[in-house]
């Protein structure tokens, strides 16, 4: 773990991998950390709006030395998915499987939201093994419909709203992923456990 100062009021904590970042975020949220924003990402957790960066850096160091009680398991969200995506056949070739085996693999993987980014409520879900990483499209599609379920790198993502995008599309869901009128606007917030469930279109 490495703590890097970012300007006067932020600390970037670098860890080994995405699982460690997810775990660090969970620990930080379970403690009363004085920060306006705590932003997990692929290899880091950013603490922004921190009144005393030095003392937070010292404090974060003690978290790994003395592991705390595991935070309560987060809720699990099921994402009902129709697996008819434009890139399903391509992913099957990359994974050297049939399309049915791709669906079986994707629906049997216990996932967790590592972080959000790209758009409000756009969740980067981890759980697939690294050997199933897929590259993004060379040229992003100009418009990907809301609810599209796709793969990029080691992540599964669901588009909360229509946007341009380069993820490999496996299918689609009609689950509402973002509703800013709700107390918790993102259905898939960091730390949420996720399972994709096949439904018929």
């Amino acid at each position: 773990m490495r703590c890097i100062r970012v300007g006067a009021h932020a600390l970037l904590v670098e860890v080994a991998d995405v699982a460690a970042a997810t775990a660090l975020f969970a620990v930080a949220r379970s403690r009363d950390v004085r920060a306006v924003d705590i932003v997990p990402a692929a290899r880091t957790v950013l603490f922004d709006g921190v009144p005393d960066v030095e003392s937070l850096a010292a404090e974060v160091g003690t978290w790994s030395a003395a592991p705390t009680a595991q935070p309560e398991p987060a809720e699990e969200v099921e994402v009902p998915t129709v697996y008819d995506g434009e890139d399903l056949a391509h992913v099957a070739r990359l994974w050297e499987m049939t399309q049915r085996e791709v669906v079986a693999t994707h629906t049997s993987t216990a996932m967790v939201v590592a972080f959000c980014g790209f758009a409000p409520g756009f969740a980067y879900c981890t759980g697939l093994p690294a050997r199933l990483s897929v590259s993004r499209l060379d040229a992003p599609r100009p418009k990907v419909p809301a609810g599209s379920v796709g793969l990029a790198g080691e992540f599964t993502g669901v588009y909360p709203s229509a946007s341009p995008g380069g993820w490999r599309l496996l299918g689609r869901t009609d689950l509402t992923l973002w509703d800013q009128e709700r107390e918790h606007p993102a259905t898939l917030a960091p730390g949420t456990r996720v399972r994709f469930v096949e439904v018929s279109g």
């Binding site: 306006v36 924003d37 932003v39 709006g49 972080f115 959000c116 409000p120 606007p185 993102a186 917030a189």
Partner: peptide, 9 residues
């Protein structure tokens, strides 16, 4: 609206 960055806001 600071405080929502973890949700991509």
């Amino acid at each position: 609206r600071p405080g929502w960055a973890h949700l991509g806001v």
